[in-house]
Structure formats: structure tokens, C-alpha cells
Simulated assay, not measured.
Amino acid sequence: MTGFPEPQFAPAAPGAPTVVVVMGVSGSGKSTVAACLAERLGWAFVDGDSFHSAAHIAKMRAGHPLDDDDRAPWLAAIAAWIDLRLQAREPGIVVCSALRRAYRDALVRGRPEVRIAYLHGDRALIEARLAARRGHFMPASLLDTQFAILEPPTAEEGAVTVSVDAPAETVAATIAARLGLREAKPE
């Protein structure tokens, strides 16, 4: 029990695809948890960072946060990936910080098969993770900007909120259970 309200979802139509957007601030473990969840479910996985332009990665690497104009084509590319999954009727998992409600709306609105999993962690834990991370373009110096713009999902968004103070496998299992997702059968 995390103390966060648990949303109630209407069951998806039989065979309906589902896309899970794993969101949270940098350092919350989005990529690691999403990869564990994808493996557990046998679903396709893409890290939203792969949709950033080289210019945007350079901007962040230099310690400058993206603004909404920078984020618009990135969110559109992620939404296009989601639409491709839905059109192909193939489930998938995508990582996207999706820190503001407007960003999540760009990914979810008009797509009832899409669910949000918000990875919540306290600042000290996230800072420690960022300090230990090597080789990522997002510097720890931008964590303040991440928390400054964070608008945690509200109950009306139907997101599941999961604490990241557990191992990634446990967090992934919690997301799967709360969303009612069945694990892939071992071969």
C-alpha cells in the first residue's frame, strides 16, 4: 500500500491493445522499470529519449532545460509511436517524463487504451540515483527544473502511482498488477 489513491479502470475490450507510458522525473528509474515491465509482459518497449533530436540532447547535456517548443516535436514523435502500436493492435511500453498534464494529454487524449504509470520518489532518493548515474545526457543539475514543472497525475487521469523505493522488478510487478496486465507465458 503506497497511500496513493487507486484508480478504477473500465476493462478494455477483449483483444484491445494497451500502451503504458512510464513517466517521472529524471533518475526515477523509468527506463529500467519500463524494460523490466516489457520483459515481464512480452511487450515492445521504446525509450522516449530515442525520440529527442541531437540538438535537444546537446541542449540538455549543456545543462539547459527544454522548453515547451522543444518538447512539442518530441511528444508528437512519441504519440506517433503510440498510434502505430495501437493501429497494429500490438501492445507497447514507452518511457516519457510527461511531467506536465498537457504533455500527458498529448499522449493519452483520444487513446483510451493508453495508461500512465507514474514513478514517484522522494527528492533525496532521486538525487542519489542521479549522482551515481554515468554516461547519461541529462545532468543532475537539471533535477530542480524537473521537480519545478512536475504536475503529478490526478485521480481523473487514471494513472497508477508507484513508489520507486523498491527494486525495479518489484516496481514493474506492481504496475502490472495495478493495471491488470497479464504476464507473458514462458516458452
Rank of each mutant, 00 (worst) to 15 (best):
W74S: 11
W74H: 11
L75D: 11
A77H: 01
A77V: 02
I78T: 07
A79L: 00
L84S: 12
L84T: 11
L84M: 05
L84Y: 00
R85H: 09
A88C: 12
A88D: 15
R89T: 13
E90I: 08
P91T: 13
P91S: 15
V94E: 05
V94T: 01
V95M: 00
C96V: 08
A98R: 03
A98K: 04
L99C: 08
R100Q: 14
A102P: 01
A102H: 09
A102S: 11
Y103E: 14
Y103N: 06
Y103C: 03
R104I: 09
D105T: 13
D105N: 11
L107F: 04
L107Y: 06
R109G: 01
R109V: 12
R109Q: 14
G110A: 08
R111G: 04
E113P: 08
E113Y: 04
V114W: 01
V114A: 05
R115I: 07
R115T: 11
R115A: 11
R115K: 14
I116V: 15
I116F: 03
I116R: 02
A117N: 09
A117Q: 12
A117M: 13
L119F: 06
H120L: 07
H120F: 06
H120I: 00
G121Q: 10
D122R: 14
R123Q: 14
L125E: 09
E127L: 15
A128E: 13
L130W: 04
L130H: 07
A131W: 09
A132K: 15
R134P: 00
R134F: 00
G135D: 12
G135Q: 04
H136C: 03
H136N: 10
H136M: 02
H136V: 12
F137V: 13
M138Q: 02
P139T: 11
P139S: 08
P139G: 04
P139W: 07
A140V: 14
A140Y: 01
A140E: 12
A140F: 03
L142W: 10
L143G: 07
L143Y: 06
Q146F: 02
F147P: 02
I149C: 03
I149L: 14
L150E: 11
L150K: 08
